[in-house]
Write a protein that binds this DNA or RNA. Sequence first.
DNA 1: ATATTAATTTTGGTATACCTAAATTATTTT
DNA 2: AAAATAATTTAGGTATACCAAAATTAATAT
Lengths: 229, 229
Amino acid sequence: MVTTTMTETLTDSVQDYLKVIYELTENGEAASTTALATRLHIAPASATGMMQKLASAKAPLVEYRKHQGVKLTVKGKRAALEVIRHHRLIEAWLVQTLGYSWDEVHSEAEKLEHVISEEFEERIASAMGNPLRDPHGEPIPSADLVMPKDQGIALANLKSNQEARIQRVHAQDTDFLKHLEKLGLIIGARVKALEVSRYDQVMRIQLRGRKEAIALGPAITNRVFVEIL
Amino acid sequence: MVTTTMTETLTDSVQDYLKVIYELTENGEAASTTALATRLHIAPASATGMMQKLASAKAPLVEYRKHQGVKLTVKGKRAALEVIRHHRLIEAWLVQTLGYSWDEVHSEAEKLEHVISEEFEERIASAMGNPLRDPHGEPIPSADLVMPKDQGIALANLKSNQEARIQRVHAQDTDFLKHLEKLGLIIGARVKALEVSRYDQVMRIQLRGRKEAIALGPAITNRVFVEIL
DNA sequence: ATATTAATTTTGGTATACCTAAATTATTTT
DNA sequence: AAAATAATTTAGGTATACCAAAATTAATAT
C-alpha cells in the first residue's frame, strides 16, 4: 500500500490569505473580508472574491458565509500553520546564522516562506535545535503543526511594581522594532512597572536600571507581552 | 544629488528566460526561440511572445530579430548574471551550511534565487568567504557581475594517459549526479584517461585507482570538464 | 418603521504568462 | 526553381489575481 502525501501547492497569495485569517481568528471570531483586505493591502472586493473561491473548492480551506466573515477549515488551519512555521523558522535562522537583526528579518522571511521545501524546513529547524520561538518571541508551530499556547500578558496590563520579563513583541515594522531596541525593550529583558497613568496614557517602566516612559497607544498596547516573574 | 538605484523588478519567469538565454549564447551565437522553449518547457509560441515583449521595452533586455534569434543586451546580461550568481551562491551555501548533497541543491536554488535580497546575497557570500565556484564546479559571477573565465577542457577530449582533475560538471539531474558520485567522479577527483575508444563510444578512465568505463553519449560529452595536471 | 450610513458583494475590467491551432517564413531536397 | 519539410510567428483563448465602480445587504439612528 502506497501513501500518497498529495500536498497540493497553494499560491503565495493564498498562503498569505490563510496566514492573515489565522491571526484574525485566533480570538475565535470570524474574520471579515474588509479586515482581510486591510491587512493584505488589497481592495475589499478582491478579498470577497478569493473567499468565495476558496470556500467553494472540493476540499475547502475556509468556511465562509456572506456578511458573516470567514474561518479556516481544519485543512486551512494546517496550511496556515505550515506557512507560519516556515516564516518563524526562517526569521530565527536569519538571525542566528547570518547575523540579521530582529528588525530586518520580516520582509526577507515573507518572501522565503513561500518557496522553501519541507526538506529545507527540517534542515534549518534541526540545525537550530528545533527552536520554540522566533526572534520576536513568537511561538513556532511544531513540525506536526501544533501552535504552542502562549501565557504571556500584555505589558500594558502590568500593575505598579510588578516585575516581568519581555516575552514577545508582535510587530514587524523596522523602525518600531529599532525604537524598542533602543529603549532596551528586547526579548528576555527584565522590566518593572513603575506607574501606569491612564490619564495621559503613559506607562513608566524600569529597564536595565533606567526609567523609561512609553506611550500606551495602539503601537504598544497589544504588541508587547511579558511573563510575570 | 541623489542616485536612484532603480533596480526594476523582473518576474521569476523573465529571470528564467534571461538565465537560459545567457547559457545558450555563451558560444557567441544567438539563441533561437525554439531552443528557449525547449529549455524552459514551454511552447515555442510562448517564447516568441516573450522575446517580442522584452525586445520592445524602453530599455530592452534582449535584442531580437525574427527568425534570427535573441541575444542579451548589456542590461539583460547584467540581470542574467545576477540570477546566476544568486543560484550558485545558494547552491554552495546549501551544501556548506545545511549539509545538502550536490545532487539535491538545484531545485531548491531554482526557487530561492528569485526571492533573495542583495543583502542576503552579500551575507551568504561573505559567510562563505566569497567562493569562486559552486558545488558542481561552476564559476560564480563576482559581486560586480563579471563571470570568471573557465579554462577547463572536456573530459572526453583527454588523450590517452593524460592526467587531470575534475573541475566542473554541467548538470542538474539528481540521478545523473548521484551516478557520477558513485563512480567517484566528483569535483576535485583525480582522473587518468586510459583508452578513448571512438568505435564503441566508450572512454576508459582511472578513478581512485580503479578502472571505470564511461559512455561518451550526450550525457557526459559536454558536461564533464577537467583541468589538466 | 423608515431613513441614513456603513459594510459587503457583484459586475465588468486589467495585466501576466501561458496554451493550441493556423498561418507564415525559412531551409532543404529533388 | 519548385515542392516539401521544418521552424517560427500570429491569432485567439485560458487561468490567476488583482482593481474600481455600482448594486446590494446589514446595521444604526431617528
